[in-house]
Design a protein around this nucleic acid. Structure first.
Lengths: 183, 183
DNA sequence: TCGCATAGTCAACAACCGTTGACTTAGGTT
DNA sequence: AACCTAAGTCAACGGTTGTTGACTATGCGA
Protein backbone atom coordinates (compact mmCIF):
# COMPACT_ATOMS: atom_id res chain seq x y z
CA UNK A 1 0.00 0.00 0.00
CA UNK A 2 0.96 3.60 -0.56
CA UNK A 3 2.31 5.46 2.42
CA UNK A 4 -0.56 7.63 3.55
CA UNK A 5 1.07 9.30 6.51
CA UNK A 6 -0.21 12.84 6.72
CA UNK A 7 3.20 14.45 6.66
CA UNK A 8 4.01 13.06 3.26
CA UNK A 9 0.72 14.16 1.79
CA UNK A 10 1.10 17.66 3.17
CA UNK A 11 4.61 18.09 1.88
CA UNK A 12 3.56 16.86 -1.52
CA UNK A 13 0.51 19.09 -1.62
CA UNK A 14 2.62 22.12 -0.81
CA UNK A 15 5.09 21.17 -3.49
CA UNK A 16 2.43 20.58 -6.12
CA UNK A 17 0.53 23.78 -5.52
CA UNK A 18 3.69 25.77 -4.99
CA UNK A 19 4.91 24.57 -8.35
CA UNK A 20 1.69 25.46 -10.09
CA UNK A 21 1.38 28.88 -8.52
CA UNK A 22 5.02 29.94 -8.75
CA UNK A 23 5.11 29.00 -12.39
CA UNK A 24 1.95 30.78 -13.30
CA UNK A 25 2.60 34.07 -11.58
CA UNK A 26 6.21 34.12 -10.45
CA UNK A 27 7.87 33.84 -7.08
CA UNK A 28 7.32 37.34 -5.74
CA UNK A 29 3.68 37.47 -6.80
CA UNK A 30 2.67 34.39 -4.88
CA UNK A 31 2.37 34.48 -1.10
CA UNK A 32 2.96 31.56 1.19
CA UNK A 33 -0.53 31.97 2.54
CA UNK A 34 -1.88 31.47 -0.94
CA UNK A 35 0.10 28.30 -1.46
CA UNK A 36 -1.02 26.97 1.89
CA UNK A 37 -4.64 27.78 1.15
CA UNK A 38 -4.45 26.02 -2.20
CA UNK A 39 -2.86 23.00 -0.57
CA UNK A 40 -5.47 23.06 2.15
CA UNK A 41 -2.97 23.23 4.98
CA UNK A 42 -1.78 25.75 7.52
CA UNK A 43 0.71 28.45 6.52
CA UNK A 44 3.11 27.54 9.26
CA UNK A 45 3.73 24.16 7.67
CA UNK A 46 5.69 25.79 4.87
CA UNK A 47 8.23 27.19 7.26
CA UNK A 48 8.24 23.92 9.13
CA UNK A 49 8.85 21.66 6.17
CA UNK A 50 10.81 23.84 3.78
CA UNK A 51 12.35 26.36 6.13
CA UNK A 52 11.17 29.37 4.19
CA UNK A 53 9.35 30.52 1.11
CA UNK A 54 12.57 30.42 -0.86
CA UNK A 55 13.16 26.90 0.41
CA UNK A 56 9.84 25.81 -1.01
CA UNK A 57 10.72 27.44 -4.31
CA UNK A 58 14.02 25.62 -4.46
CA UNK A 59 12.20 22.38 -3.75
CA UNK A 60 9.85 23.02 -6.65
CA UNK A 61 12.85 23.59 -8.88
CA UNK A 62 14.33 20.24 -7.94
CA UNK A 63 10.94 18.62 -8.28
CA UNK A 64 10.51 19.96 -11.78
CA UNK A 65 13.99 19.71 -13.23
CA UNK A 66 15.96 17.75 -10.76
CA UNK A 67 16.83 14.39 -12.00
CA UNK A 68 16.11 13.90 -15.66
CA UNK A 69 19.22 13.45 -17.72
CA UNK A 70 18.17 14.84 -21.06
CA UNK A 71 20.42 13.66 -23.85
CA UNK A 72 20.94 16.23 -26.56
CA UNK A 73 21.30 15.21 -30.17
CA UNK A 74 23.39 17.32 -32.48
CA UNK A 75 23.07 19.07 -35.82
CA UNK A 76 19.63 19.52 -37.32
CA UNK A 77 18.22 17.04 -34.83
CA UNK A 78 19.13 19.53 -32.10
CA UNK A 79 16.65 21.96 -33.56
CA UNK A 80 14.02 19.23 -33.61
CA UNK A 81 14.69 18.38 -30.00
CA UNK A 82 14.51 21.98 -28.86
CA UNK A 83 11.36 22.60 -30.80
CA UNK A 84 9.84 19.53 -29.25
CA UNK A 85 10.73 20.50 -25.71
CA UNK A 86 10.22 24.25 -25.86
CA UNK A 87 7.30 24.40 -28.20
CA UNK A 88 5.41 21.14 -28.33
CA UNK A 89 5.95 20.12 -24.75
CA UNK A 90 5.61 23.51 -23.12
CA UNK A 91 2.51 24.59 -24.95
CA UNK A 92 -0.83 23.58 -23.52
CA UNK A 93 0.86 21.39 -20.99
CA UNK A 94 0.89 21.78 -17.25
CA UNK A 95 4.59 21.15 -17.27
CA UNK A 96 6.33 24.37 -16.40
CA UNK A 97 8.56 25.87 -19.04
CA UNK A 98 12.07 26.92 -18.16
CA UNK A 99 11.85 29.98 -20.32
CA UNK A 100 8.58 30.97 -18.74
CA UNK A 101 10.23 30.48 -15.39
CA UNK A 102 13.01 32.82 -16.40
CA UNK A 103 10.79 35.61 -17.57
CA UNK A 104 8.46 35.34 -14.60
CA UNK A 105 11.26 35.67 -12.12
CA UNK A 106 13.50 38.25 -13.67
CA UNK A 107 12.61 40.76 -11.00
CA UNK A 108 13.98 39.05 -7.93
CA UNK A 109 17.74 38.92 -7.67
CA UNK A 110 17.87 35.97 -5.32
CA UNK A 111 15.43 33.87 -7.31
CA UNK A 112 16.92 34.99 -10.60
CA UNK A 113 20.21 33.46 -9.58
CA UNK A 114 18.57 30.12 -8.88
CA UNK A 115 16.65 30.16 -12.12
CA UNK A 116 19.70 31.05 -14.11
CA UNK A 117 21.56 28.13 -12.60
CA UNK A 118 18.77 25.76 -13.52
CA UNK A 119 18.67 26.97 -17.09
CA UNK A 120 22.39 26.66 -17.45
CA UNK A 121 22.54 23.18 -16.01
CA UNK A 122 19.54 21.99 -17.93
CA UNK A 123 19.97 23.55 -21.36
CA UNK A 124 22.72 26.01 -21.95
CA UNK A 125 25.54 23.73 -20.96
CA UNK A 126 24.09 20.87 -22.95
CA UNK A 127 23.58 22.90 -26.07
CA UNK A 128 27.09 24.18 -25.62
CA UNK A 129 28.33 20.65 -25.23
CA UNK A 130 26.76 19.62 -28.49
CA UNK A 131 27.74 22.65 -30.50
CA UNK A 132 31.15 23.11 -29.00
CA UNK A 133 30.99 26.84 -29.61
CA UNK A 134 29.82 28.87 -26.57
CA UNK A 135 29.06 31.85 -28.72
CA UNK A 136 26.73 29.93 -30.98
CA UNK A 137 25.09 28.19 -28.05
CA UNK A 138 24.40 31.53 -26.42
CA UNK A 139 22.83 32.75 -29.61
CA UNK A 140 20.59 29.72 -29.75
CA UNK A 141 19.52 30.32 -26.19
CA UNK A 142 18.69 33.89 -26.94
CA UNK A 143 16.63 32.77 -29.90
CA UNK A 144 14.70 30.37 -27.71
CA UNK A 145 14.17 33.00 -25.03
CA UNK A 146 13.05 35.60 -27.50
CA UNK A 147 10.42 33.37 -28.99
CA UNK A 148 9.14 32.54 -25.54
CA UNK A 149 9.01 36.13 -24.37
CA UNK A 150 7.42 37.28 -27.59
CA UNK A 151 4.72 34.73 -27.12
CA UNK A 152 4.06 34.74 -23.39
CA UNK A 153 5.00 38.17 -22.21
CA UNK A 154 4.68 40.47 -25.16
CA UNK A 155 1.79 38.54 -26.65
CA UNK A 156 2.61 39.59 -30.17
CA UNK A 157 -0.07 39.08 -32.72
CA UNK A 158 2.05 36.73 -34.78
CA UNK A 159 2.54 34.54 -31.74
CA UNK A 160 -0.68 35.06 -29.89
CA UNK A 161 -2.40 32.06 -31.41
CA UNK A 162 -0.47 28.88 -30.60
CA UNK A 163 -2.36 26.90 -33.21
CA UNK A 164 -0.98 29.01 -36.02
CA UNK A 165 0.97 26.89 -38.50
CA UNK A 166 3.46 29.72 -38.75
CA UNK A 167 4.69 29.43 -35.22
CA UNK A 168 6.67 26.22 -35.32
CA UNK A 169 8.00 27.23 -38.69
CA UNK A 170 9.27 30.49 -37.23
CA UNK A 171 10.85 28.80 -34.29
CA UNK A 172 12.55 26.31 -36.53
CA UNK A 173 13.78 29.03 -38.82
CA UNK A 174 15.32 31.16 -36.13
CA UNK A 175 16.91 28.24 -34.35
CA UNK A 176 18.45 26.93 -37.53
CA UNK A 177 19.80 30.37 -38.28
CA UNK A 178 21.38 30.59 -34.85
CA UNK A 179 22.74 27.10 -35.26
CA UNK A 180 24.58 28.13 -38.40
CA UNK A 181 26.12 31.21 -36.86
CA UNK A 182 29.85 31.55 -37.45
CA UNK A 183 31.95 33.95 -35.42
CA UNK B 1 14.04 82.55 -16.55
CA UNK B 2 13.15 78.97 -15.84
CA UNK B 3 10.00 78.36 -13.89
CA UNK B 4 11.15 77.44 -10.45
CA UNK B 5 7.79 77.02 -8.73
CA UNK B 6 8.03 74.21 -6.26
CA UNK B 7 5.15 72.22 -7.67
CA UNK B 8 6.83 71.83 -11.01
CA UNK B 9 10.11 70.80 -9.47
CA UNK B 10 8.46 68.21 -7.25
CA UNK B 11 6.48 66.68 -10.08
CA UNK B 12 9.57 66.50 -12.20
CA UNK B 13 11.67 65.01 -9.44
CA UNK B 14 9.10 62.28 -8.87
CA UNK B 15 9.00 61.58 -12.58
CA UNK B 16 12.76 61.46 -12.92
CA UNK B 17 13.41 59.20 -9.97
CA UNK B 18 10.36 57.10 -10.71
CA UNK B 19 11.69 56.55 -14.19
CA UNK B 20 15.12 55.61 -12.96
CA UNK B 21 13.88 53.24 -10.25
CA UNK B 22 11.08 51.59 -12.18
CA UNK B 23 13.42 50.88 -15.05
CA UNK B 24 16.16 49.47 -12.93
CA UNK B 25 14.11 47.13 -10.77
CA UNK B 26 10.63 46.94 -12.24
CA UNK B 27 7.28 48.31 -11.15
CA UNK B 28 6.38 45.86 -8.41
CA UNK B 29 9.80 45.94 -6.80
CA UNK B 30 9.85 49.66 -6.24
CA UNK B 31 7.74 51.21 -3.51
CA UNK B 32 6.25 54.68 -3.64
CA UNK B 33 8.06 55.50 -0.44
CA UNK B 34 11.33 54.71 -2.13
CA UNK B 35 10.58 56.96 -5.07
CA UNK B 36 9.53 59.75 -2.76
CA UNK B 37 12.68 59.38 -0.67
CA UNK B 38 14.86 59.48 -3.78
CA UNK B 39 13.06 62.57 -4.99
CA UNK B 40 13.37 64.13 -1.56
CA UNK B 41 9.67 64.72 -1.13
CA UNK B 42 6.80 63.32 0.90
CA UNK B 43 5.12 60.05 -0.12
CA UNK B 44 1.69 61.60 -0.18
CA UNK B 45 2.68 63.84 -3.06
CA UNK B 46 2.69 60.87 -5.42
CA UNK B 47 -0.95 60.17 -4.79
CA UNK B 48 -1.66 63.87 -4.96
CA UNK B 49 0.02 64.53 -8.28
CA UNK B 50 -0.30 61.24 -10.11
CA UNK B 51 -3.31 59.72 -8.41
CA UNK B 52 -1.63 56.44 -7.66
CA UNK B 53 1.54 54.42 -8.09
CA UNK B 54 0.29 53.15 -11.42
CA UNK B 55 -0.45 56.71 -12.45
CA UNK B 56 3.15 57.66 -11.83
CA UNK B 57 4.29 54.68 -13.85
CA UNK B 58 2.11 55.66 -16.76
CA UNK B 59 3.53 59.16 -16.57
CA UNK B 60 7.07 57.79 -16.76
CA UNK B 61 6.07 55.82 -19.85
CA UNK B 62 4.83 58.94 -21.58
CA UNK B 63 7.87 60.85 -20.42
CA UNK B 64 10.21 58.25 -21.87
CA UNK B 65 8.49 57.24 -25.06
CA UNK B 66 5.70 59.70 -25.52
CA UNK B 67 6.39 62.04 -28.31
CA UNK B 68 9.32 61.02 -30.45
CA UNK B 69 8.33 60.04 -33.94
CA UNK B 70 11.00 57.54 -34.88
CA UNK B 71 11.31 57.08 -38.61
CA UNK B 72 12.20 53.54 -39.61
CA UNK B 73 14.37 52.82 -42.60
CA UNK B 74 13.90 49.60 -44.53
CA UNK B 75 15.97 46.67 -45.72
CA UNK B 76 19.44 46.18 -44.32
CA UNK B 77 19.32 49.70 -42.93
CA UNK B 78 16.52 48.51 -40.66
CA UNK B 79 18.93 46.15 -38.97
CA UNK B 80 21.40 48.97 -38.55
CA UNK B 81 18.75 51.17 -37.00
CA UNK B 82 17.60 48.49 -34.60
CA UNK B 83 21.13 47.64 -33.61
CA UNK B 84 21.78 51.29 -32.98
CA UNK B 85 18.72 51.80 -30.83
CA UNK B 86 18.60 48.50 -29.00
CA UNK B 87 22.26 47.83 -28.62
CA UNK B 88 24.34 50.95 -28.94
CA UNK B 89 21.84 53.34 -27.43
CA UNK B 90 20.55 51.11 -24.67
CA UNK B 91 23.85 49.89 -23.43
CA UNK B 92 25.68 51.94 -20.88
CA UNK B 93 23.15 54.70 -21.23
CA UNK B 94 20.73 55.97 -18.64
CA UNK B 95 18.02 55.87 -21.24
CA UNK B 96 15.64 53.07 -20.38
CA UNK B 97 15.36 50.25 -22.88
CA UNK B 98 11.97 49.09 -24.01
CA UNK B 99 13.03 45.48 -23.98
CA UNK B 100 14.40 45.83 -20.51
CA UNK B 101 11.14 47.41 -19.52
CA UNK B 102 9.25 44.44 -20.89
CA UNK B 103 11.25 41.83 -19.09
CA UNK B 104 11.26 43.72 -15.82
CA UNK B 105 7.50 44.00 -15.77
CA UNK B 106 6.36 40.65 -17.01
CA UNK B 107 5.03 39.72 -13.60
CA UNK B 108 2.32 42.31 -13.23
CA UNK B 109 -0.68 41.88 -15.46
CA UNK B 110 -1.81 45.47 -15.25
CA UNK B 111 1.59 46.93 -15.96
CA UNK B 112 2.34 44.29 -18.57
CA UNK B 113 -0.58 45.52 -20.60
CA UNK B 114 0.72 49.06 -20.56
CA UNK B 115 4.21 48.00 -21.47
CA UNK B 116 2.99 45.86 -24.31
CA UNK B 117 1.06 48.77 -25.73
CA UNK B 118 4.13 50.96 -25.62
CA UNK B 119 6.25 48.39 -27.37
CA UNK B 120 3.70 47.88 -30.07
CA UNK B 121 3.22 51.57 -30.72
CA UNK B 122 6.89 52.28 -30.62
CA UNK B 123 8.46 49.37 -32.45
CA UNK B 124 6.34 46.45 -33.50
CA UNK B 125 3.90 48.43 -35.61
CA UNK B 126 6.74 50.38 -37.21
CA UNK B 127 8.78 47.34 -38.07
CA UNK B 128 5.62 45.80 -39.41
CA UNK B 129 4.97 48.88 -41.46
CA UNK B 130 8.40 48.68 -43.02
CA UNK B 131 8.46 44.97 -43.66
CA UNK B 132 4.81 44.63 -44.64
CA UNK B 133 4.73 41.11 -43.29
CA UNK B 134 3.39 40.80 -39.70
CA UNK B 135 4.84 37.36 -39.33
CA UNK B 136 8.36 38.47 -40.19
CA UNK B 137 8.01 41.54 -38.00
CA UNK B 138 6.99 39.40 -35.06
CA UNK B 139 10.02 37.21 -35.63
CA UNK B 140 12.31 40.22 -35.63
CA UNK B 141 10.77 41.39 -32.38
CA UNK B 142 11.31 38.03 -30.82
CA UNK B 143 14.91 38.08 -31.93
CA UNK B 144 15.39 41.47 -30.35
CA UNK B 145 13.71 40.39 -27.14
CA UNK B 146 15.69 37.20 -26.92
CA UNK B 147 18.97 38.98 -27.20
CA UNK B 148 17.92 41.39 -24.51
CA UNK B 149 16.71 38.72 -22.13
CA UNK B 150 19.75 36.57 -22.73
CA UNK B 151 21.95 39.48 -21.82
CA UNK B 152 20.11 41.19 -18.99
CA UNK B 153 18.12 38.49 -17.33
CA UNK B 154 19.82 35.23 -18.03
CA UNK B 155 23.27 36.79 -18.06
CA UNK B 156 24.67 34.20 -20.42
CA UNK B 157 28.41 34.05 -20.66
CA UNK B 158 28.43 34.93 -24.30
CA UNK B 159 26.49 38.07 -23.58
CA UNK B 160 27.69 38.94 -20.13
CA UNK B 161 30.44 41.24 -21.31
CA UNK B 162 28.99 44.11 -23.33
CA UNK B 163 32.38 45.07 -24.70
CA UNK B 164 32.76 41.73 -26.47
CA UNK B 165 33.21 42.19 -30.21
CA UNK B 166 30.99 39.18 -30.72
CA UNK B 167 27.90 40.78 -29.35
CA UNK B 168 26.98 43.25 -32.05
CA UNK B 169 27.92 40.66 -34.63
CA UNK B 170 25.51 38.19 -33.06
CA UNK B 171 22.72 40.71 -32.86
CA UNK B 172 23.24 41.68 -36.47
CA UNK B 173 23.31 38.07 -37.55
CA UNK B 174 20.08 37.07 -35.85
CA UNK B 175 18.24 40.18 -36.94
CA UNK B 176 19.28 39.72 -40.54
CA UNK B 177 18.15 36.13 -40.40
CA UNK B 178 14.75 37.13 -39.09
CA UNK B 179 14.56 39.85 -41.69
CA UNK B 180 14.96 37.28 -44.44
CA UNK B 181 12.33 34.95 -43.08
CA UNK B 182 9.83 33.78 -45.66
CA UNK B 183 6.55 32.17 -44.64
C1' DT C 1 -5.34 93.17 4.62
C1' DC C 2 -8.27 89.67 3.79
C1' DG C 3 -9.30 85.52 1.76
C1' DC C 4 -8.07 81.55 -1.03
C1' DA C 5 -6.13 78.20 -3.71
C1' DT C 6 -2.13 75.53 -3.81
C1' DA C 7 2.11 73.04 -1.74
C1' DG C 8 3.73 70.39 1.54
C1' DT C 9 3.74 67.75 6.25
C1' DC C 10 2.33 64.28 9.30
C1' DA C 11 0.14 60.43 11.25
C1' DA C 12 -2.67 56.92 10.60
C1' DC C 13 -5.31 53.59 8.07
C1' DA C 14 -6.36 48.73 6.61
C1' DA C 15 -4.31 45.16 4.26
C1' DC C 16 -0.83 42.22 3.37
C1' DC C 17 3.84 40.02 3.90
C1' DG C 18 7.09 35.94 5.88
C1' DT C 19 8.13 33.90 10.03
C1' DT C 20 7.94 32.29 14.92
C1' DG C 21 6.69 29.95 19.15
C1' DA C 22 3.45 27.97 22.13
C1' DC C 23 -0.18 25.04 22.05
C1' DT C 24 -3.16 20.60 21.22
C1' DT C 25 -3.59 16.22 19.07
C1' DA C 26 -2.47 11.78 17.35
C1' DG C 27 0.47 7.41 16.62
C1' DG C 28 3.74 4.26 17.74
C1' DT C 29 7.16 2.30 21.01
C1' DT C 30 8.71 0.59 25.37
C1' DA D 1 -0.46 2.49 30.69
C1' DA D 2 3.21 5.84 30.26
C1' DC D 3 6.09 8.10 27.22
C1' DC D 4 7.71 10.47 23.29
C1' DT D 5 8.08 12.08 18.77
C1' DA D 6 5.95 14.13 15.09
C1' DA D 7 1.77 16.70 12.85
C1' DG D 8 -1.08 20.12 12.83
C1' DT D 9 -3.45 24.50 14.84
C1' DC D 10 -3.62 29.12 16.31
C1' DA D 11 -2.44 33.72 17.28
C1' DA D 12 0.67 36.99 17.14
C1' DC D 13 5.05 39.32 15.87
C1' DG D 14 7.36 43.19 13.30
C1' DG D 15 7.59 44.80 8.99
C1' DT D 16 6.03 46.63 4.58
C1' DT D 17 2.68 47.99 1.19
C1' DG D 18 -0.48 51.94 -1.23
C1' DT D 19 -3.56 55.37 0.02
C1' DT D 20 -6.20 58.90 2.68
C1' DG D 21 -7.54 62.94 5.27
C1' DA D 22 -6.59 66.48 8.44
C1' DC D 23 -3.34 69.72 9.34
C1' DT D 24 0.02 73.94 8.53
C1' DA D 25 2.55 77.11 5.48
C1' DT D 26 3.13 79.92 1.52
C1' DG D 27 2.25 83.10 -2.09
C1' DC D 28 -0.87 85.61 -5.13
C1' DG D 29 -4.92 88.39 -6.47
C1' DA D 30 -8.78 91.19 -4.89
Amino acid sequence: MRDLSTSYTTREALLTHGLRLFWSRGFTNVSVREVARAAGVDVALISRYYGSKLGLFEATLHEAYGLDGVVMPDGAALVDAIVQVFVTLDRGSDMPSVTRLIQMNADDEQVGHLVRKVYDELWQSKIEGVLGDPSRAALMSSAILGLCVAENSLKLDGFAAPHLPHYEQQVRFLLTAALNFEA
